[in-house]
Design a binder for these strands. Structure first.
Length: 311
DNA sequence: CCCCAGGCTTTTC
DNA sequence: GAAAAGCATGGG
C-alpha cells in the first residue's frame, strides 16, 4: 500500500477533527488502534496522526481526484489554512477570555467533504442528538453503501462507500425509514433529494461554483424539503468549501448569547432571527471565514463550557 | 412525564 | 410578513 507522510507547518488535530462530529466519522469510518479508515473520493484511505504536525497516510492510489495523495490530503484537511489567522486580529484583544479558551481548539479543522454525502448526513441532523445522527448515517452506509474490503497490517477491514444518489433515489420509503430513526418524513426527504441529484434538478457541481453568492446558494438548497437555513449552511460549509457559511444551531445560538452578548441570540431561533444573527456574526468574525471560526468556537463551547464529551 | 437533541413546516395573528 | 405552535423520534 502506498504511504505518504504529511508534514504541516500548522497544528492539526486529526483525532479531534475525526471525532468532532463530521461526516468523516459519521460515515462509519473504522478505527483500529490509532489508524482511521475511511473512503474519501471513492478511495479507501488510512490515516494515523503521529504528532501535532505529522500524518501518516496510506492508500492504494498514488493520486486522487487528479491530485497526488499528498496534495489531496493537504487540500482535504484544509492544511493550507493557518487557523490562528481565521480569527480577526482584534479578536484576542476584544475577547481575551474566549481567546484563551480557544487555544486547544485552533488545531480543529474543517474538511472538504463530498457534497452529496454532506447533504444527506446533515439532513439526518435535525432535532436529534449526535449519537442518533451517527447511528442513522452508519445505518444508511451499511444498508445502502457499496461494500469494500481493504487489507492492511495483515487484516481485512470492511468499509462501505457512502450510498450513491441512485441507490437512495430508488430506496423503499419504509425500508429507508429504519435508517432514519423511523422518521418517514426524513426518509421521504432524503429520497426526494437523491432523486433531485439523479435527475439533475440539484446540480451539486454548479453549487460548488465559488462565484455563487452565499444567499443565493442557501436559497437554492432551501428549495428542497427538509433543508432549511441551518442545514443549507452546513452543506455549504462542510460540503461545498464555503467557509463563509455560518450554520447557527442551538449550541451556536447559546455561545453567541453568552460569549458575544447578543440579545438576538436570546430570542427563539426563527428564520428572521437566524438571518439577524448571521449578520451580527459577520461584524464579529471575518465574513469570509466566519464558518471556519464558528466551527472552532462550536467545539470549544461544547467541550469547555457544556462539558460534552460525546462527539 | 418531563426535557433535550448540531430544525423544518404549517398555522395563526 | 412575522411570531407561535406543531411535528417526529429516541434517550436521559
Amino acid at each position: 500500500m502506498y504511504h505518504e507522510k504529511i508534514i504541516t507547518k500548522n497544528r492539526i488535530n486529526v483525532k479531534g477533527t475525526l471525532y468532532s462530529g463530521q461526516t468523516f466519522l459519521w460515515n462509519n469510518s473504522n478505527i483500529l488502534g490509532d489508524y482511521h479508515f475511511s473512503i474519501i473520493n471513492s478511495t479507501p484511505i488510512i490515516i494515523n496522526q503521529i504528532s501535532e504536525y505529522e500524518l501518516d497516510v496510506y492508500s492504494d492510489e498514488k493520486s486522487i481526484g487528479g491530485l497526488s495523495l499528498y496534495d489531496f490530503i493537504h487540500h482535504y484537511f484544509t492544511l493550507e489554512i493557518n487557523t490562528y489567522s481565521v480569527f480577526p486580529e482584534s479578536f484576542s484583544r476584544l475577547y481575551p477570555d474566549i481567546w484563551r479558551l480557544l487555544g486547544n481548539y485552533l488545531s480543529v479543522r474543517i474538511m472538504r467533504q463530498d457534497p452529496f454525502e454532506t447533504m444527506i448526513s446533515f439532513m439526518c441532523a435535525q432535532g436529534v442528538g449526535m449519537q442518533l445522527i451517527r447511528k442513522q448515517v452508519a445505518m444508511l452506509v451499511q444498508n445502502y453503501g457499496e461494500k469494500r474490503s481493504v487489507s492492511f497490517l495483515g487484516r481485512e477491514i470492511i468499509l462501505h462507500h457512502f450510498p450513491s444518489p441512485e441507490r437512495l433515489a430508488g430506496a423503499d420509503l419504509i425500508t429507508l425509514s429504519s435508517c432514519t430513526n423511523n422518521n418517514r418524513l426524513r426518509a421521504r426527504n432524503i429520497i426526494q433529494v437523491s432523486q433531485g441529484v439523479v435527475e439533475g434538478r440539484i446540480d451539486l457541481e454548479y453549487l460548488c461554483n465559488r462565484q455563487l453568492p452565499l444567499s443565493e446558494l442557501r436559497s437554492m438548497l432551501c428549495l428542497n424539503d427538509g433543508i432549511g437555513y441551518k442545514i443549507a449552511d452546513c452543506i455549504a460549509l462542510f460540503g461545498l468549501g464555503r467557509f463563509d457559511a455560518f450554520p447557527i444551531d442551538t449550541h451556536v445560538k447559546q455561545y453567541l448569547g453568552k460569549w458575544f452578548n447578543s440579545s438576538t441570540a436570546l430570542r427563539s431561533l426563527s428564520p428572521r432571527s437566524y438571518l439577524a444573527l448571521d449578520g451580527e456574526v459577520r461584524t464579529i468574525l471575518n465574513p469570509d471565514l466566519a464558518g471556519y471560526a464558528g466551527h472552532i468556537l462550536f467545539h470549544c463551547w461544547r467541550k469547555e463550557i457544556k462539558k460534552l464529551h460525546s462527539f
